[in-house]
């Protein structure tokens, strides 16, 4: 079995602070990490590798420094790492990104593609499903756990707002994974020691076949006009009371505002 996992380098949003004056994100000194849902997806792939000897490739689109998460993926146990990096890919929204990644995936031989559900910087949850559409493959989103019959059928637990669905799907297919469903393994010491001796393949526009009107800024119908922080409307009130009394206060307040 061949698996491709799509991963993204994101700023660690738990470490991000807002500039109190401008309301914008202070990105200086914020560490970059592998997106948590993607790491969950990578763990699913590595578990399939442990059980069935799958060959696992990671693909990321990003600037050259995104190499760091590919090294991390090597240290966790993947077999091949590809960096999609070209100025032509820059400024992409989710649609242009998914066109670029899908074009790269078409160059690879795979039975399963796993992406994270969504990235913690954009929170769109669009790229995975779009990739599946471009590749015309069945997709299961919000995957919490999965089993494989050893032949070609996956049984997948798909998380829903209320409860979950069990879905059977045949390879080739696309999953978008939830970080909450799995505990990603730590990098091994030997994996780390050897990670920097392994090859990172850098693919540019010339390595893939894609319509250049569909990628980068040109291929992005989305335009961001303005980013701002939601203002705080009121200072709020603090009650130091017993839980039972607190419930009554909250219910009354909600009724006052006709929320319930």
């Amino acid at each position: 079995m061949k698996i491709v996992v799509c991963i993204k380098q994101v700023p660690d949003t738990t470490e991000i602070k807002l500039d109190p004056v401008t309301g914008t994100l202070i990105r200086d000194g914020v560490p970059s990490i592998m997106n948590p849902d993607d790491k969950g997806g990578l763990e699913f792939a590595l578990q399939l590798k442990d059980q069935y000897g799958a060959h696992v490739t990671v693909v990321t689109m990003g600037p050259p420094q995104a190499e760091a998460i590919l090294r991390e993926a090597y240290a966790m146990g993947v077999d091949r790492a590809i960096l999609l990096s070209d100025r032509k890919f820059g400024g992409a929204d989710t649609l242009a990104t998914s066109h670029t990644i899908a074009a790269a995936l078409k160059m690879l031989d795979f039975d399963l593609v796993i992406t994270g559900r969504q990235a913690i910087d954009g929170d769109t949850a669009q790229v995975g499903p779009q990739i599946a559409e471009h590749l015309d493959l069945p997709q299961v989103t919000y995957v919490e756990s999965l089993t494989f019959d050893g032949n070609k059928t996956f049984t997948v637990k798909k998380s829903m707002e209320e409860g979950y669905q069990m879905v059977e799907v045949d390879a080739p297919c696309v999953f978008t994974a939830l970080a909450s469903g799995v505990k990603p393994r730590y990098m091994s010491v030997r994996g780390i020691v050897e990670a920097y001796d392994k090859e990172i393949e850098t693919w540019t526009y010339d390595n893939i076949t894609v319509d250049d009107k569909k990628i980068g800024l040109n291929g992005s119908p989305t335009r961001v006009f303005k980013s701002f922080t939601k203002g705080v409307k009121a200072a709020g009130q603090i009650y130091e009371v017993e839980p039972a009394e607190a419930v009554d206060i909250i219910i009354n307040k909600l009724k006052e505002k006709f929320i319930i």
Binding site: Y186, M187, S188, V189, R190, V193, E194
Partner: peptide, 26 residues
């Protein structure tokens, strides 16, 4: 499981092939 019990020893002897610097960091 992660190789922390054999950081600065050669891979041929089951170690992680790491340095003493890594070992001190651990």
């Amino acid at each position: 499981k992660l190789g922390i019990m054999g950081i600065p020893f050669p891979v041929e002897y089951g170690g992680a092939g790491g340095s003493n610097i890594l070992y001190t960091m651990a």
